[in-house]
Structure formats: structure tokens, C-alpha cells
């Protein structure tokens, strides 16, 4: 439902706000993201710094870190996800109430980072949970986390609640829970969730390079 912006501006000057239900809800959601309080490695230290007075994440309505996934909207995966930790991260994600968002903070959470060659490091949390915003860096500075948060707010503001392109949490047919990987004798089983992530098609050939 498009509103003539000029008309909306005229009405605003008269003290009348005209908006859509959708933007009102998205405005509320984007302005009070409650992150889940957990950190996995050194990125968590930068996340803590971002909440402190110098960077003050409270300016963006995201300072209420909740110790329970039931009360959280935003999961900041801050740090290296080991394979031993990955099932617990997926389980925490499953326990969060919709709508829920994920920020993958730092090189490790995105791809395994400097520990990618390790036998016990998950090569990106996006193999198991859907990631909305990835923040590169090792670790990212608090400003980068704030930028990621603002990016997420912009994404939430554009979310559709109805129609074919609606957000996942507005889709009654979307699955409620993600499968939690189990500990296998050599590796996690499965090693990734094929509904969320698949190895990108590689155009190089074995004879090249």
C-alpha cells in the first residue's frame, strides 16, 4: 500500500501520521532487537565493548542482552563455532521465538576463519542456521558490529508481512525447527543442512590451476 510521500509529509506537518501496519510493526521490531547473551570466542569481547558506554549499542535499541533464548530476537554468533558447540548453537536458535535474526560476527563464524583447516572447527555457521548479516573481521571492531546491526535494521524495515515475498516468520508453511546435527564417529552428521546451504558450484576444473 503505497502512500503518496508528499501527502504523508503534508499530513505530518499537521500532526497526523499516516503509515502502513507493516511499517509500524517493522519499525517496532527493528528498534528493539534483543540479542541473545552468548559469546564463543574473542569476538564476544568486541561485542561486549559495543554494548559499553563508549560505543553504546543502546542507541540502536539492542542493549537488552537476554540470558534466555525465549526472550531474544537476535542471535549474534560471536566467535569460532567448534563442531562440539554447533549442535548447541542450532538448538538455541530453535528455542528462540519468531521473528528471529542471526548475525554471524567475525571470520570464524562466517567461514571458520584462521582455524578453517582445523578438524574441530565448523566452516561457517551458515551451514546450519540462516544468517541475515555477516560481519567480516578478525575480530570486527565494535563499529563494524554496530554497522551490522544497522544493516539488519534496514533489512527488517523492508520485510514484507504478506504476499509471495513475505518474510520467513510470516509464512505459516515455513518449518518451525531446524534439524540439530548429531555427533558422529568422525564428524558432525550431517556436515551441513542442505535446505540452507549447499557448496557453491565450482566452475574450475580439476585440470586447471
Amino acid at each position: 500500500m503505497a502512500i503518496d510521500p508528499k501527502l504523508a509529509e503534508d499530513l505530518k506537518s499537521q500532526g497526523v501520521h499516516v503509515t502502513s501496519f507493516e511499517s509500524l510493526i517493522n519499525w517496532g521490531r527493528a528498534s528493539s532487537l534483543w540479542p541473545l547473551q552468548f559469546g564463543l570466542a574473542c569476538c564476544a569481547i568486541e561485542m561486549i565493548a559495543a554494548t559499553m558506554a563508549k560505543y553504546d549499542m543502546a542507541r540502536f535499541g539492542a542493549e537488552v542482552f537476554r540470558p534466555s533464548p525465549r526472550q531474544a530476537d537476535l542471535m549474534i554468533v560471536a566467535g569460532t563455532v567448534t563442531k562440539k558447540m554447533a549442535p548447541q548453537v542450532v538448538r538455541l536458535y530453535n528455542q528462540m521465538a519468531e521473528p528471529k535474526y542471526v548475525i554471524a560476527m567475525g571470520a570464524c563464524a562466517i567461514s571458520g576463519g584462521p582455524f578453517k583447516d582445523g578438524y574441530n572447527v565448523l566452516k561457517g555457521i551458515d551451514r546450519f542456521i540462516p544468517v541475515d548479516v555477516s560481519i567480516p573481521g578478525c575480530p570486527p571492531r565494535p563499529e563494524a558490529l554496530l554497522h551490522g546491526l544497522i544493516t539488519l535494521r534496514e533489512q527488517i524495515a523492508k520485510e514484507k508481512l504478506l504476499g509471495r515475498t513475505r518474510a520467513r516468520h510470516a509464512d505459516p508453511n515455513a518449518g518451525a525447527e531446524l534439524p540439530v546435527p548429531t555427533f558422529g564417529p568422525h564428524d558432525l552428521e550431517p556436515t551441513f543442512n542442505p535446505d540452507l546451504w549447499n557448496p557453491p558450484a565450482i566452475t574450475r576444473h580439476a585440470s586447471e590451476s
Partner: peptide, 18 residues
């Protein structure tokens, strides 16, 4: 460090990572 179901011993020289 590793989970209980894990069978290998990763710091052995002949360990093959998944």
C-alpha cells in the same frame, strides 16, 4: 575436548581430518 562419540585421535600423525 572432542565429543564422547568421536573415535579418532586427532594429534596422531596418521589422523585424516574429515
Amino acid at each position: 575436548l572432542m565429543w564422547d562419540e568421536f573415535l579418532d585421535h586427532p594429534l596422531r600423525k596418521d589422523y585424516v581430518a574429515p
